[in-house]
Write a protein that binds this DNA or RNA. Structure first.
Lengths: 213, 213
DNA sequence: CGGCATCCAGGTAGATACTG
DNA sequence: CAGTATCTACCTGGATGCCG
């Protein structure tokens, strides 16, 4: 492993030696959504240099966190069971960092995998359980995200399909989730654009996904 | 902030921008135990270069994670409320990394603050609740740690004092907590040395602090 | 084209020395 | 004791090239 060690026998230092390098935990974040090809990872991490991505993938593989899996002529990277157990770490970091998100800057992008993890982080099962099952379709960049809320359970998948409400999701959607922007204001201001379906359901979305600062 | 940003509007990336630099989260780990002076932090992180420590402290302060607090002629560093909310992150990382700890190597040290966080990570309140209140004294390097288990609650403090059982805690104690080494074997093999008190209580310790691989 | 390897520039970490 | 200054080595980032 490339990571220089910290010289301590401690769980935190060990974790940092394995996933503390720059970009490593973001690769894990995206792989928590599902297996991804090299190019998909590169697309989800627009600023990562290709050599760094290649190096990280090798290191994470050696560490037993992910594996290269051949899938019908192409190679996908997928987390091992041990890698998947980083989910609480990623969710905890996401929840903590979410509250330090300032105004979205112009050069900041929102990727489908990042939004998926944000939705998982901010999902409130106890709120959702009291609401009717709802399907949302979010358009983020060129990709579509189908968000199925059914009682206290959440499923986010890639793709397009039927939904009760379809809307575009730019970085501004975080302000709604953070409670800084009322759902109605988000729509009237254009921060979120309803594509079709029942616009009134966006308030339900905002209630379902919420993390206050 | 020195950290180059990741160009994404996402909680995980934001967190990594704030505490993703090398050593940063270890400083937080130690400060989660209590306020620390510069020299105490340096002692708890034996391999950190002093300039890096100084830089990190400045960055973490600017990020609103810690503050310099004058305490009767000396300055201590202490976490802000927002910094203290990194505890779930540190505990999750500690729990995950703990299971990837191999055999302790000779150059690896165990610091009092690291052990304190490990104890917090691996404490099993539901087990402790069913056991009599117990005070352990652990000697780690030159420092003493008083571990008070009272029902489902745990308090770890620096210092020496009365205890039902006193023992030395080297890196080998992690193998006991991981369940790789039976408590009795740890004592007979010398991995843990009972200093005084009821040696039979070490089994209770092992039951109270446990995280299986 | 997807999946990397190579090359180079700049910045950050590490070791050490030094100062208020 | 609590940092600051300096120097070097390595790592990261960005561009580009290779190869099945």
């Amino acid at each position: 492993m490339a990571a220089r060690d910290y010289g301590q026998h401690c769980g935190v230092t060990r974790a940092l030696e394995l996933v503390g390098e720059r970009w490593a935990l973001l690769i894990v974040r995206d792989l928590l959504v599902g297996p991804r090809r090299y190019g998909e990872l590169a697309a989800g991490l627009p600023r990562i240099p290709s050599n760094v991505l290649a190096t990280r993938l090798k290191e994470l593989q050696e560490a037993g966190i992910l594996r290269r899996a051949p899938r019908s002529r192409v190679i996908v990277y997928e987390l091992t069971p041990y890698g998947r157990e980083l989910e609480p770490v990623v969710l905890a970091m996401g929840a903590w960092g979410f509250r330090a998100l300032g105004e979205p800057r112009d050069e900041q992008v929102l990727t489908p995998d990042a939004l998926t993890m944000t939705l998982r982080t901010t999902f409130r099962p106890e709120v959702a359980a009291a609401l009717p099952a709802t399907a949302y379709a979010a358009r983020v960049g060129h990709a579509g995200l189908l968000i199925h809320v059914h009682g206290p359970s959440l499923a986010v998948t890639r793709g397009d399909g039927d939904a009760d409400l379809a809307f575009t999701a730019g970085p501004g959607i975080h302000r709604v989730i953070a409670g800084e922007l009322a759902p109605d204001d988000a729509i009237t201001s254009g921060a979120v654009e309803v594509l079709h379906g029942r616009a009134d359901l966006f308030g339900r979305f905002a209630a379902t996904f919420h993390l206050a600062a």
